[in-house]
Write a protein that binds this DNA or RNA. Structure first.
Length: 865
RNA sequence: GCCCGGGUGGCGGAAUUGGUAGACGCGACGGACUCAAAAUCCGUUGGCCAUUGCGGCUGUGUGGGUUCGAGUCCCACCCCGGGUACCA
């Protein structure tokens, strides 16, 4: 297999880079040079080791980093570990192994794997979020948040499972029972730390405008923030003095159509207003609702349910008395937890009104011919007294003025974004640097940071909602450094997001024990010029990191409001393409794929099993894939996400062992556009391996010569420089590699390859396949690394060809190609084209009616009618 | 439902501002080398027709349109992927 000695070459160069610290970026650099900060989303070092998805983004950034170094930039290209998190803690629960041990072991493996891929990280800047010298500053940022009033305590409902003695996430509770074990759970109000991210909603929205991010990611963040404009309106309750129900609406213009009101079941006013007669029903409904998780509530969206409270509110616009209901289609967590229901203009309200026979009144005139129920579109107000005849936008403005004049409502901007629940009842996270003295919360002073985790022998849940830290008795009780009094530590820890909110800042100045980051260095390096990572972080990580960054900006710690100038998501790598046939489990006969749904034959209902079919037993018939032995049996063809259970996981270590890191890197980049989802193909790796072998032979089997290159060689080289350079700039690694392949294909046809051609080519190859490039470079007689050798310069003059093949069309269809000088004028080109027999044949007797000449590209002759 | 992407050979994918559709690679087929196989090298490779020579027709999800010329622009529709969901 070893057509070129990649094993020796790769380990030898990895050792060279390591011992020479080739990619170390000194803390103080020559600041007159331009900088480029290229960042990977740092991995969570899981026990499973690196998967093929990691090196995809990491190779892309490595190519850019290597390229920018050769272009004379100071490059910051660091890596680290996002190492707090649940898996290590759960492993500890099962095995008793301390999370620190597991984490260190996993980091060791990841580090080794990343080094075996030849990534040009500055390993002197490695950070680890679980290292006290790192999380000291995570805690420090928490103190800043607290100082600025952005961290506060609140009673928040969380799922509590008595049996398991722990709090659970929403996803871990089904039907009011724990997902694991099926133990009963209940919602409990628990004191939690919450970060006031909503304060930054507007700026988080606004800042997106300045970033070069994928549109879909920006859109997701916008949706997540969910800004809406409307009004708060107060509705008095009939017969209950001074009781006001406040609603939020984006359609205040429809207030005359508000024929009833709905409160969320948890709304605190429910108890106050419900009548004696209805109270039982109301409480029953509340009880029922409290057992449903948010997820379930939204899954059951089709059928609406609710209960009348017996109370009536007064519509402030027309003094009408309208019934007040409770229903779980109104969420307590959004707006005010209460709505004015306008069935005429809202589909949900219409469905509810129809079910419970509540009045429906249209206040926007639907277009003629409208056959739907609720009309949510544009139009003119009707049945709305002084709003009649106004367009909805005018009507909104008008009614808000009216509401404000009468002091019953006001303009209001609302956000879907909630404040960030920041407490976790876990061990393996950053302790929150707060204490309680006589139940009074207090921030610890900066100089006692970091607050380390206590040593624990057991990681079992404490049995109270406080989390495992409450078990560390010695740690738990402390003295308030300011008063000297006894105090109790906060036992909650931070969520996994915390450490990843600011790690890119620490890379800039990783050893600084005095500050989070030196301001001068921060100013030089920030913002991150290119950030590559998975789209699964499109919302939370990227939103949280932006939020912290804005807070640090306001606190004067950083100099840019936005941390990441350009963001790219690498697409997921799926498993190999799979051909699946279906077979009846009882008869053993094939079943065509179009007759299979949910593992059953659609007519007979017979259970079918999936059989993997080898590619060479597959044929294509019409538009479908079929079994070649039974062409009426259709197959399903698709690639699946890699998963252990499917058995289609590709282990990068094995690929590297077989083909080498360079071939592996090259293949991952050659598969297709970086952002795209694409199926793996080990055969494809073989293709890039073959290319490297050919390249190896091209250079090593040709005696180096000092001849002057000919025009053709220069042209091919400079075309390659041109394409590779612009492709790297645009992150089009697949076409850059295609250009390198074309170069090698062309070079194989030459008698020999002069040094003046071979050397620049090797430099072009270097960012993609650095090990082989270094080795070839040393074959040229150079002693040092090529990592800082200037990138080959494009000379335009070599690109121009003396003659080009020009396609000649007649009526838009190519009928001939002529060889002609690109600078030839139109008449000359036409004359040459007319000499072509095939052109004359399609043109007929008469001269062309029209001639279109795009210089150097195409000539189109339009035949006379 | 809504919001974003996207539909090109057997497969992954190329194609400035509209200008030779299928670069590059995989696979397949034929040949060379070999006792044989692997590896390697050379050639062919969208489909159909013609191949006695140039060649012809057709083809980028479907239907229509604009244009000298459409994968690319416009309109309508179908399908796939991702996100999100009672947000008032």
């Amino acid at each position: 297999m070893s057509a070129y000695p990649f094993r020796e070459i790769e380990s030898q160069w990895q050792a060279y880079w390591e011992s020479n610290k080739t990619f170390r970026t000194p803390i103080t650099v020559d600041a007159s040079k331009p900088k480029y900060y290229v960042l990977d989303m740092f991995p969570y070092p899981s026990g499973a080791g690196l998967h093929v998805g990691h090196p995809e983004g990491y190779t892309a950034t490595d190519i850019v980093a290597r390229y920018k170094r050769m272009r004379g930039f100071n490059v910051l290209h660091p890596i680290g570990w996002d190492a707090f998190g649940l898996p290590a803690e759960q492993y500890a629960l099962r095995t008793g192994t301390h999370p620190r041990i597991t984490t260190e072991r996993n980091i060791g493996r990841f580090r080794k794997q990343l080094k075996s891929l030849g990534f040009s990280y500055d390993w002197d800047r490695e950070v680890d979020t679980t290292d006290p010298s790192y999380f000291k500053w995570t805690q420090w940022i928490f103190l800043k948040l607290f100082e600025r009033g952005l961290a506060y305590e609140a009673e928040v409902p969380v799922w509590w499972c008595e049996e398991l003695g722990t709090t659970l996430a929403n996803e871990e509770v089904v039907d009011g029972r724990s997902d694991i074990g099926g133990h009963p759970c209940e919602k409990r109000m628990l004191r939690q730390w919450v970060l006031r991210i909503t304060e930054y909603a507007e700026r988080l929205l606004d800042g997106l405008k300045q970033t070069d991010w994928p549109v879909s990611t920006k859109e997701m963040q916008r949706n997540w923030i969910g800004r809406s404009e409307g009004a708060d309106i107060d509705f008095p309750v009939q017969g209950v003095e001074s009781a006001r129900i406040r609603v939020y609406t984006t359609r205040p213009d429809t207030i005359f159509g508000a024929t009833y009101m709905v409160l969320a079941p948890e709304h605190p006013m429910v108890d106050q207003i419900s009548t004696e007669a209805q109270l039982d029903q109301v409480q029953n409904y509340q009880e029922l609702a409290s057992h449903k998780s948010d997820l379930e509530r939204t899954e059951l969206q089709k059928e609406k349910t609710g209960v009348f409270t017996g109370a009536y509110a007064i519509n402030p616009a027309n003094e009408e008395a309208i019934p007040i209901w409770i229903a779980d289609y109104v969420l307590y967590s959004y707006g005010t937890g209460a709505i004015m229901a306008v069935p005429g203009q809202d589909e949900r309200d219409w469905a509810f009104a129809a079910k419970y026979d509540l009045p429906i009144r249209r206040t926007v005139q639907p277009p003629t011919g409208f056959t739907g129920l609720a009309y949510t579109g544009d139009g003119v107000a009707v049945n709305s007294e002084f709003l009649n005849g106004l367009h909805i936008e005018e009507a909104k403005a008008r009614i808000i003025d009216w509401l404000e004049e009468h002091n019953v409502g006001r303009r209001k901007v609302n956000y879907k974004l909630r404040d960030w629940l920041f407490s976790r009842q876990r061990y393996w996270g950053e302790p929150i640097p707060m204490i309680f003295e006589n139940e009074k919360v207090q921030a610890l002073p900066e100089d006692v940071l970091p607050i380390n985790l206590p040593e624990l022998d057991e990681f079992k849940p404490s049995g109270t909602p406080e989390g495992p830290l409450a078990l560390a008795k010695d740690w738990l009780m402390t003295t308030n450094p300011e008063t000297g009094n006894l105090a109790r530590r906060e036992t909650n820890t931070m969520p996994q997001w915390a450490g990843s909110c600011w790690y890119f800042l620490r890379y800039i100045d990783p050893q600084n024990s005095e500050r989070l980051v030196d301001p001068e260095l921060e100013k030089y390096w920030m913002p991150v010029d290119l950030y590559i990572g998975g789209a699964e972080h499109a919302v939370l990580h990227l939103l949280y990191a932006r939020f912290w960054h804005m807070v640090l900006y306001d606190a004067g710690v950083v100099s840019t409001p936005e941390p990441f100038a350009k963001l790219v998501h690498q697409g997921m790598i799926l498993g190999e393409l799979e051909y699946t046939a279906w077979r009846d489990t009882t008869t053993g006969k094939w079943v065509s794929a179009e007759n299979v749904t949910d593992g059953k034959e659609i007519h007979t209902g017979a259970i079918v099993e999936a059989i993997q079919i080898d590619e060479d037993k597959v044929a294509k018939s019409m538009e479908r894939f079929v079994l070649s032995e039974a062409p009426d049996i259709q197959l399903d063809v698709r690639a699946f996400k890699m998963s252990k259970s499917r058995g289609n996981v590709i282990n990068p270590d094995e690929i590297i062992e077989q083909y080498g890191a360079d071939a592996f890197r090259l293949y991952e980049m050659f598969m297709g556009p970086l952002e795209q989802v694409k199926p793996w193909s080990t055969r494809g790796v073989h293709g890039t391996f073959r290319f490297l072998s050919r390249t190896w032979r091209l250079i090593t089997e040709n005696p180096l010569n000092e001849k002057e290159p000919d025009q053709d060689q220069l042209r091919v080289l400079h075309q390659t420089i041109d394409r590779v350079t612009s492709d790297i700039e645009e992150l089009r690694m697949n076409t850059a590699i295609a250009a390198l392949m074309e170069f090698v294909n062309a070079a194989f046809k030459w008698e020999d390859i002069p040094r003046k051609i071979a050397e620049p080519f090797v430099l072009l190859l270097a960012p993609f396949a650095p090990h082989i490039a270094e080795e070839l470079w040393s074959c040229f007689g150079y002693k040092d690394t090529l990592a800082y050798v200037p990138w080959p310069e494009l000379k335009q003059e070599y690109l121009t060809e003396e003659v080009v093949d020009l396609p000649v069309q007649v009526n838009g269809r190519v009928r001939a190609t002529i060889r002609i000088a690109p600078e030839a004028d139109k008449q000359e080109v036409i004359r040459a084209a007319m000499l072509e027999p095939n052109v004359r044949r399609f043109l007929g007797e008469n001269p062309p009616r029209r001639e279109i000449y795009v210089p150097g590209r195409i000539l189109n002759l339009v035949a006379a009618k």
